[in-house]
């Protein structure tokens, strides 16, 4: 059974339609990357899956049809998203950010234990746990956004361009964390990226999105082998 199945998804903003019916799938424990240029509709896809904008088509999570569900229900169903840009609550402390991430869960001790676990994974967050999130560096904020998303104990993590505005070294570190999470915890990941090179290495499968349509899909190896795709997206 696949973790996420999207069939004929279309969405947009008011009269402007961005997605023209896309299909995609993320298997259990899979690491899937969606590549696309600016304005291809990557963020819209993510927002549509999380229920932030109205959408047509079918979105299934672990077999449940969630197309008509509200955002909080979708989080409860096990889908967490790290949105593009600042995905944190800048006025809240790091700890409060983490606790807000666990909003859908019950039971204080479990939540505290989880928080300490993620502070071990991201030690810099642990050091700054009482600081306001807005005072963290860009890379730390992105880590906080990921840790916050993980606090809801998701089965599927949606990551919207976490590398945006970060130095290459920090991006690498971030991707390393995502890869470990996928490998060690069995977390399914759908990662949206412009930074193709890095993402292709860790992806088990890749989708190419162009002006609201999926134009190609396959394993990293398959897509790298295709000359035209390699020239257009990978630049080598």
């Amino acid at each position: 059974m696949s973790m996420l199945r999207v069939v004929g998804l279309s969405a947009g903003y008011g009269p402007v339609s961005v997605l023209q019916g896309i299909d995609l799938e993320v298997g259990e424990g899979e690491f899937v990357v969606m590549l696309g240029a600016n304005g291809a509709g990557k963020t819209t896809t993510m927002r549509a899956i999380s229920g932030l904008i109205s959408r047509q088509g079918l979105v299934e999570v672990a077999g449940d049809d969630i197309t008509k569900w509200s955002p909080d229900h979708i989080v409860r169903a096990g889908v967490a998203q790290v949105p593009q840009g600042r995905g944190t609550f800048p006025e809240l402390s790091v700890e409060d950010n983490m606790l807000a991430g666990a909003y859908v869960r019950h039971g204080g001790h479990d939540v505290r234990d989880d928080m300490h676990k993620w502070f071990e994974v991201f030690p810099r967050l642990g050091e700054r746990r009482h600081q306001r999130a807005g005072s963290l560096s860009g890379g730390e904020q992105q880590m906080l956004a990921i840790a916050r998303a993980l606090m809801s104990r998701p089965k599927l993590l949606l990551c919207d361009e976490p590398s945006l505005g970060l130095a290459p070294l920090i991006t690498q570190e971030l991707f390393g964390v995502l890869e470990r999470l996928n490998r060690d915890e069995g977390l399914s990941v759908l990662l949206v990226e412009q930074n193709a090179n890095l993402a292709m290495h860790i992806a088990s499968r890749v989708y190419l999105l162009e002006t609201g349509n999926i134009v190609a899909s396959g394993t990293s190896a398959e897509l790298s082998a295709d000359d035209s795709i390699r020239k257009a997206y990978l630049g080598f």
Partner: peptide, 10 residues
């Protein structure tokens, strides 16, 4: 009509 909305992401 559209001018008052915040800049919307794509």
């Amino acid at each position: 009509p559209t001018s008052n909305h915040e800049g919307e992401p794509q």
